[in-house]
């Protein structure tokens, strides 16, 4: 069954015409460590990138990765600049209005980060005079706008810029994926003096069921192929291999 789906997917890519049968154009990000970052040579690397390549191997195509600005990544998919988004994108109802998703490939909660000595609480009163930073177009922006509409919110193009302004003190707090914050900031030298504040923030209506691979709605076969490939990676141990390269526990 899996084989049939994969074959169908390959043909659906072929008929899409945007790429040759052997390449799948993937929009990734590049400033969201450890999931994706740009190394000194200008190449993309990270968990998302490894997963993307493994999935392409599984389907039998070559990934052509494109670093894409986060706030334009769904438009890029819709404009056929790429055929799939593998960029830690949460599967949400709001996004499902525009695109479709594979099954999740990981799921980690969102948490606030602030200076270690910060003594405010995460509620309407505690955040009243605070400036909070989020990445523009992320679920965290939606979360803040819905849960704390009165709090001053600053929007950034990349998560790395959020960390820079946390360090400079322009931001009192930031909310983002907890693993991204832990590995991409708190465990680095830059994150010295910062810590998580409050527990996991989880609003199923906003945060969804985890991060999935975004595809255009009409590419149904591709969606099933990607979900099947994720399941296969879970089964054959490739996922664990990639997971253990970055994380101490299973983030699926």
């Amino acid at each position: 069954m899996k084989r049939i789906i994969l074959a169908l997917a390959a043909s659906s890519i072929l008929t899409a015409g945007a790429a040759s049968a052997e390449t799948l154009k993937v929009c990734a990000e590049g400033a969201y460590p450890p999931f994706s970052k740009t190394n000194e040579a200008g190449d993309l690397e990270g968990f998302d990138i490894d997963i993307a390549n493994a999935i392409c191997d599984e389907i039998g195509v070559t990934c052509e990765l494109q670093a894409t600005e986060w706030d334009g990544i769904i438009p890029a998919l819709l404009e056929k600049k790429c055929d799939a988004i593998i960029a830690s994108m949460s599967i949400t109802e709001e996004r499902k209005k525009a695109i479709d998703f594979s099954e999740k490939y990981y799921n980690t909660p969102a948490r606030f980060v602030a200076r270690s000595d910060a003594d405010f609480t995460i509620d309407e009163d505690g955040l009243a005079d605070m400036v909070v930073g989020v990445q523009r177009g992320s679920v965290h922006q939606d979360f803040m706008e819905k849960t704390f509409p009165e709090v001053e919110l600053q929007l950034y193009g990349t998560q790395d810029e959020v960390y820079l302004d946390l360090q400079s003190g322009r931001l009192d707090a930031a909310i983002q994926d907890s693993i991204a914050a832990d590995d991409g900031f708190l465990k680095t030298d830059a994150g010295d003096g910062f810590a998580f504040i409050g527990g996991n923030q989880n609003d199923p209506a906003i945060h969804g069921e985890g991060a999935g691979i975004g595809v255009r709605k009409e590419d149904v076969f591709l969606k099933y192929a990607l979900s099947a490939a994720i399941a296969a990676l879970r089964e054959n141990g490739t996922y664990k291999e990639i997971n253990d390269k970055y994380f101490e526990f299973d983030i699926y």
Partner: peptide, 14 residues
């Protein structure tokens, strides 16, 4: 900035 905000909010390219 507002144009980009609209793009990110409604996923409209242009």
């Amino acid at each position: 900035g507002v144009g980009r905000w609209l793009r990110a909010k409604y996923y409209v390219p242009y």
